[in-house]
Nucleic acid binder design. Structure first.
Lengths: 253, 253
DNA sequence: TCTCCTTATTACTCCGACATATTACAGCGA
DNA sequence: TCGCTGTAATATGTCGGAGTAATAAGGAGA
């Protein structure tokens, strides 16, 4: 069989390979992609910067070149970097980034998120969500309403101060997007849901829940359930505007 | 130096490694990702299906496991597939796909695109673009107007029948998104631009340019240049509605 | 019937080498 | 001196194989 041991014997007391967060179900290259992604989004590597060569960087991270390359492929797929022979791997300009990608959003909010970017996300919400609520009011079926009702009940039960409550909030908004029966809009749900989640988390970080969000949500729900498109659109617009106001006031401190 | 030849000697007359489209600047794993991506988007591999194991599939494609794995990482990053030990690599349900990702959109339009999906994309356009035109009218600066003016001139010069004309059309819409000075909206530009491009290509495939799109664009441009937000929004809404109508009529044949 | 454990399968990680593409420079010619 | 062309250096790209770890499935026991 051969006793030639060539595998990864990283030494008996080398501890662990630096990849900080690495639970089960979280692969090594995924952890590295997360590490590099947050580094880029936080500005540690600016657009135009060239990363150290594969060999050097992989060695620095104490991982194999294969794992490093697979991580870079992920970043490339999301438009963050570009690799060319001889030229190296360099960070692309910001307008090439897929900012709506759920992972990229997660990386953006991993550190201290840009205030201007949060404003932009709310502007996107204020465009998409009222229109989505209008369509949902026109097209929702019984099961859509059921999901929204349950999400609303869960929000009431847990409040948005808990993780379960925020998940219910996300579910509520996702249910509206799904009720439009439009795949393209549903794809935005992941992005918008992420924005909803992290911004609410930010709101309550600053001050303890400045306002009860339940009534706003109930108004949206009632309008959609009643099939009143105009009312649904208006109610959702009011909800987003109020959420933006709360978030803005808690960020200006 | 050793004469032990172990590298990739694919035989003298093996032709090429099956990866069909593979130009310079187009890596092997990129080509494989494209191949698999189009296969998934076209429905050749349905959600829930399990791909053959790494070894078997890589062998079938006549590429190394490394290249195959890097391609799969790309698909994973875009939410198309998920890999787990023992379970294999399986196609995720459609609602997990990042349908707004430019590459995914390209793969979706590589074959015969779903008519319903095109309708959904137009619905997204009819939500986002009028709102974007409104913001652009409020925030545009001189350079924004300049870019739009040039794109419009290029459209007039080449007509949308040519590739250069379609590129100008895309540039025009991108310029509007960019004039909002909102990063999140600009990220949508890539997706919407792709939709604009392929749908116009489809329109003229069926019938030779049913209507001159220039006047619609001029109305939008004038309103934005004049800073009239309401007019810009209305003009853009009309433009998208007319484009949808043209596309729909050319698809129903 | 249910839970726990064992086992087999599959993806995951590592390694070292060779191939290829692209940049940068040097030499040459106009 | 300027511009072009061919050559060499270098980093990414690709390859094959070996060994590890995680998980789903099946079997043993309660």
């Amino acid at each position: 069989m051969g006793n030639a041991k060539v595998g990864n014997d990283k030494g008996a007391d080398e501890a662990k390979p630096a990849a900080s967060t690495r639970g089960p179900g979280r692969r090594l290259h995924g952890a590295v992609a997360h590490k590099l992604g947050t580094a880029i989004l936080s500005g540690k590597y600016a657009p135009g910067d060239t990363l150290s060569g594969e060999v050097a960087f992989a060695e620095e991270l104490e991982i194999s070149r294969s794992a490093y390359r697979e991580a870079v492929q992920v970043l490339t797929a999301k438009g963050l970097v570009e690799s060319r022979p001889k030229a190296g791997t360099r960070v692309l300009p910001r307008n090439r980034w897929n900012l709506l990608d759920p992972d990229v959003l997660a990386w953006a909010f991993a550190g201290e998120p840009d205030v201007e970017f949060i404003r932009n996300l709310f502007e996107l919400r204020s465009i998409v969500e009222p229109a989505a609520a209008r369509l949902a009011a026109e097209r929702r079926d019984k099961s859509d309403i059921k999901v929204m009702k349950e999400a609303l009940a869960a929000m009431r039960r847990h409040t948005v101060a808990t993780e379960a409550g925020r998940a219910a909030d996300r579910d509520f908004h996702n249910a509206i997007l799904r009720a439009t029966h439009n795949d393209a809009l549903m794809a935005l749900a992941a992005s918008i849901g992420a924005a909803v989640n992290w911004t609410t988390q930010f709101k309550q970080r600053a001050r303890a829940l400045p306002r009860n969000p339940i009534p706003d949500h109930v108004r949206v729900y009632d309008a959609i359930a009643a099939g009143d498109a105009d009312a649904a659109s208006d109610a959702m617009r009011a909800l987003v505007d109020l959420a933006l106001e709360d978030t803005r006031s808690s960020m200006q401190d």
